[in-house]
Design a protein around this nucleic acid. Structure first.
Length: 722
DNA sequence: GGGTATATGTCAGCA
DNA sequence: ACATATACCC
């Protein structure tokens, strides 16, 4: 397809800063890829001078693949494509000396951060109900991205006790990371920026290396990432920032929309190009999505347009509950596929929170529809993966005490609480890491022989693995690791289904490392980075079953497109999400939620299906739901609306059989006015039976079964029982 | 020291 | 409903 005028201008741009405001579906990835190709083939720029930064690893891989098809392999290989985190990790590992950091520093993932925060909370004795671990992590993240340190917080905390506690925890957290030779995700960026600031010759080297910088999803960059770009581009100023303020959905984690708005101030003389033609969606879908977005006040007005006239109306279906919703989605997809014009992979089901995937997965399984949950990091959250990763981290960096503590007694080797406490004490007293403290404790000769033996065995195990790592690839190390620790065998003994699942995960882990050795550099440290930075699980073997429906969160759908999109759970408090009933939704958050739905809607090419349910099982209980306010912001002429919940209620109402059912205490029932409740007592039979019900909204009512038209919620009984 | 039963908190989104 | 944290027992 030919480029349009604006796209052409962006692709042909060579020198100087340029901002590309690219609306949804306006072909921005194509523009970035073509411009890179153009820089090399037409402008004669060396490929190693080009740095392309994407938001996810997935996007990076896709870009690499597309570049490979357009360029000679010798060229495409030399272009640097990656996320901020992966690019910075590479720089830090290379320049570790200047930072007085081990080359094999560990990357602390979220779980690792959490254990550190919890420990710091305990140490300070702060109340974890007010400063919750999660809140602390996000506060620290924000502080770091503003280049604030525990010290600056100490100074500015003044008399505010919360700030003071925060400063203390921040300090402990940071000390812990440092002692363990670990960096968290934010450090990866901020430490690179500090390196650039403190070592002009290093900055100069990289400025010279990366003369052409392209950044995708610029609306989602944070302050530290901005600083990185600003410094790195300082000499040549060849920055192309591509983004769309309407698709900014990461402000919650520090993304600053001002980066895109202030681009001209930051890079004087910058060109601006607006891509407003949408090549993806039908007029109907685009009109509806634009109408939704007009409710946002803080945005640059824009007029997206499309050549793809008309199209199907957007379907809006209301169901009685989340199970019915999931079943309906499955039925609709099956019908479409059976019609012969669509395949499973044409469809994606999007939702606001990962917890929604469960009901959907159950429905897909029972209807035998092939599906894949995208971006769900469940594999990386598995205990087995964390354990093995902890081993790897410890082998690479024995200073990593958090990892050491995790696997010191996994599998069981008789090093329990008491010994661990002793070791920690030795570590603190000598100012060493946990692993070194084992050697120190062994020297004291104060241990009984059993303890002595198991500790000694552990040390030699790790040392042996270190040696193996020096001469072998990551796969060999992992295989030796499993063999020497007996980790896999520790599950084989148990015949339980749980143990079987564990073994499957371990085998999958081995496959992952084998795959990495084939496709990556094969090193253990490279593999550890891969595991730490690639939280979106790529599904290495994409060749297998690709004809699957994709399930993912709205966030994960960014940058993707599908022929048909189903969005589930369009209800108040879920979309827009309100986590805390006490807290009201700020205007900023509401607008971000709206943008998130906008991103979801604009993923659709031909079909868009929206769903809401009147009841939903969430946070451990069934809740009565209200339709999302966003549904009222979509013009009704774009919608084809069916209320199946109402139909179902009416059907049961007109069916006297329902009234004849007798009720038992414990039964879950539904009443047209009072909603759901639990039967606590029932006397009599048939329509004249007197039923006492505790309604979920807090009312207790005595009703006559007949006129009350109670509906048995049998479909929910299995859930309520457990 | 280790395993299991019970209590408690969590399900926001991501690199 | 699930996962983790602690409490308690062997």
């Amino acid at each position: 397809m030919k480029l349009n005028r604006q796209q052409e201008l962006a692709v042909r741009h060579v020198d100087g800063p340029i901002l590309v405001l690219a609306g949804a579906g306006s072909g921005k990835t194509r523009v970035i890829v073509k411009r890179i190709a153009n820089l090399i083939t037409d402008a004669g720029i060396y490929p190693w001078h080009i740095l392309a930064i994407t938001f996810t690893n997935k996007a990076a891989n896709e870009m690499k693949t597309r570049l490979e098809t357009m360029l000679q392999e010798s060229d495409s290989r030399k272009i640097t494509v990656g996320t901020f985190h992966s690019v910075c990790t590479r720089i830090l590992r290379f320049e570790h000396n200047a930072l007085k950091l081990s080359r094999n520093f560990s990357i602390a993932d979220e779980a690792n951060q959490l254990t550190r925060i919890k420990r710091a909370l305990k140490e300070t004795g702060a109340n974890p109900d007010i400063l919750t671990p999660k809140l602390l992590i996000s506060k620290i993240s924000r502080a770091k991205n503003q280049f604030e340190t525990p010290e600056t917080w100490q100074n500015k905390s003044g008399y505010n006790p919360f700030n003071k506690t925060f400063a203390e925890i921040f300090q402990l957290y940071q000390q812990g990371l440092k002692a363990d030779q670990s960096l968290d995700f934010d450090d990866l960026i901020t430490e690179t920026v500090r390196l650039f600031q403190n070592e002009p010759h290093i900055l100069s080297k990289y400025q010279d290396k990366y003369r052409y910088i392209l950044i995708d999803e610029y609306q989602d960059t944070n302050n530290a990432q901005y600083m990185f770009v600003k410094l790195l581009s300082g000499r040549y100023r060849n920055v192309m920032a591509v983004g769309d303020d309407d698709q900014s959905i990461y402000q919650w984690r520090g993304a600053e929309i001002s980066n895109i708005i202030n681009f001209h101030k930051d890079f004087p003389g910058a060109k601006t190009i607006k891509l407003e033609q949408n090549y993806r969606s039908t007029q109907i879908i685009l009109t509806a999505a634009s109408a939704l977005m007009r409710h946002n006040k803080k945005r640059n007005p824009k007029t997206l347009w499309t050549d793809i006239q008309g199209g199907e109306l957007i379907h809006l279906e209301t169901w009685l509950n989340d199970k019915e919703e999931a079943r309906a989605i499955c039925r609709n997809i099956t019908n479409k596929v059976n019609s012969g014009f669509r395949k499973y992979s044409d469809y994606a089901v999007l939702y606001r929170v990962n917890a929604q995937s469960r009901v959907l997965e159950e429905a897909f399984q029972s209807q035998k529809i092939p599906y894949r949950v995208v971006g769900n990091t469940s594999f990386f959250k598995r205990k087995e993966v964390k354990d093995l990763l902890a081993y790897i981290r410890l082998v690479l960096n024995t200073g990593d005490s958090v990892s050491c503590r995790r696997i010191l007694n996994v599998p069981r080797r008789g090093i329990g609480k008491t010994t661990l406490n002793d070791l920690e004490e030795v570590a603190v007293r000598n100012g060493t890491d946990l692993f070194s403290s084992i050697g120190l404790l062994l020297q004291t000769n104060q241990l009984n022989s059993r303890k002595h033996q198991s500790l000694e065995a552990f040390v030699s195990l790790i040392n042996a693995l270190k040696k193996i790592d020096q001469e072998n690839n990551a796969e060999d190390v992992v295989r030796h690791l499993l063999q020497m620790t007996g980790y896999r065998e520790s599950f084989v003994i148990h015949a339980s289904a749980e143990a079987k699942a564990s073994i499957e995960i371990i085998d999958e882990f081995v496959n992952t490392v084998a795959d990495y050795v084939v496709h990556g550099d094969g090193s253990l440290s490279g593999f550890a980075d891969y595991l730490s930075l690639y939280s979106d699980d790529e599904d290495g073997d994409l060749g297998a079953d690709t004809n699957q429906v994709q399930l993912m969160t709205l966030h994960n759908a960014k940058g993707l497109e599908f022929t048909g999109v189903f969005i589930a759970g369009l209800e108040e408090e879920l979309c827009p999400l309100i986590r805390n009933n006490k807290e009201s939704l700020s205007a900023e958050l509401l607008e971000e939620e709206r943008r998130l739905l906008y991103v979801g809607m604009t993923r659709a090419r031909q079909e868009l299906h929206l769903y809401n349910a009147e009841r939903r099982f969430l946070y451990g209980r069934e809740m009565v739901r209200q339709p999302s306010r966003f549904l009222y912001e979509i013009p009704s002429e774009s919608l084809k609306q069916v209320d199946h919940a109402r139909d179902m209620m009416q059907k049961t109402k007109s069916n006297p059989a329902a009234a004849r059912k007798s009720f038992n205490s414990g039964d879950r029932v539904l009443h047209a006015t009072w909603g759901t409740g639990t039967v606590v007592d029932c006397s009599g039979d048939g329509p004249t039976a007197k039923v006492v019900i505790n309604f979920d909204r807090g009312l207790k009512k005595k009703l006559l079964a007949g006129p009350a038209n109670l509906v048995h919620l049998n479909r929910n009984i299995s859930r309520i029982k457990t």
